[in-house]
């Protein structure tokens, strides 16, 4: 455990000291502030507009940071040969993967959590009907972002950094739409198509099932039981992705 914690702390240091992250995070905050301006020009919808725009910004920037930083986490260690230092010490390949994941998870916790808190405080400040739902929505965005990290870490053990990022973003977009695959299959497409749709539905993480942005702006009610169930599914999904990454790393030679 000490080794995993050491790698996680080192990864946290690495990512928070990366200037690119600072620039992206500042830009994300600017976008949230821009939501204030959008709110001011919308008729009696200011608070709602700001929350809606802000939560979209939190999601977009969280996922972008996750996809691009996670892709380089493992690859950079291999390409710059720092893995020689790590794997010549009593560090397991699985511990390495988990440590890297936890380190980036901590960084993203700070970034996504910070953005969510900033949005919450802004809604409080402008009196746009601030609610704890903004924070709940942020927590569920964080869960989605972590799933993207696990997926990208897995891809980065078998392919290039840029392709891993693209695949991660692809999985995120597909995950927003995966429930549609199931809906389409029910329109009289036959048993085979329906079975295939189920396979696709299970393989692609269903991000839309834990997306409560609409509820946060007051447009929908939430079935919390279903959200909890899909949340557990996402945790299992990222666990499987990390086990896959550890398995690939175990087979690698340096």
């Amino acid at each position: 455990m000490t080794q995993v914690a050491a790698i996680a702390l080192n990864t946290f240091r690495e990512t928070v000291r990366d200037r690119v992250l600072t620039v992206i995070a500042l830009f994300a905050l600017l976008m949230i502030v821009a939501g204030l301006w959008l709110g001011s020009i919308s008729l009696e919808q200011g608070g709602r507009m700001m929350k809606d725009f802000g939560l979209v910004a939190v999601t977009a920037f969280g996922v972008i940071i996750a996809a691009f930083i996670a892709a380089t986490l493992v690859r950079k260690e291999v390409e710059k040969r720092t893995v020689f230092v790590l794997f010549s010490k009593p560090v397991s390949r699985g511990g390495f993967v988990v440590g890297k994941f936890l380190g980036l998870a901590a960084t993203l916790g700070v970034v996504v959590g910070g953005m969510g808190l900033f949005l919450f405080l802004m809604t409080l400040a402008v009196g746009g009907g601030a609610s704890g739902m903004v924070l709940v929505a942020t927590a569920l965005i964080y869960l989605q972002v972590l799933t993207v990290v696990a997926v990208v870490v897995f891809f980065s053990t078998i392919t290039s950094a840029i392709l891993s990022s693209m695949l991660g973003l692809g999985v995120f977009v597909a995950g927003q739409l995966s429930h549609n695959v199931l809906s389409l299959s029910r329109i009289g497409a036959g048993a085979v198509t329906e079975a295939a749709s189920w396979v696709v539905f299970v393989l692609i993480p269903n991000f839309s099932a834990v997306d409560v942005k609409a509820a946060a702006v007051g447009e929908q009610t939430v079935d919390w039981g279903a959200v909890a169930l899909w949340g557990v599914y996402l945790v299992a999904y990222m666990t499987v992705a990390l086990i896959g990454a550890a398995f690939v790393m175990r087979r690698k030679e340096f």
Binding site: T2, Q3, A5, A6, I7, L9, N10, R13, E14, R17, D18, K80, R81, T82, F84, V85, L86, S88, K89, P90, V91
Partner: peptide, 30 residues
């Protein structure tokens, strides 16, 4: 490996860490 030390050829280490942080990190790996 807990009783082995290794210096790779043309070593490259984490450039965002200070020398002290890097060695302490290596210590924690043990």
């Amino acid at each position: 490996l807990g009783d082995v030390g290794y210096l790779p050829e043309n070593p490259y280490f984490y450039d965002y860490l200070s020398g002290r942080e890097f060695l302490a990190f290596c210590g924690r790996l043990f």
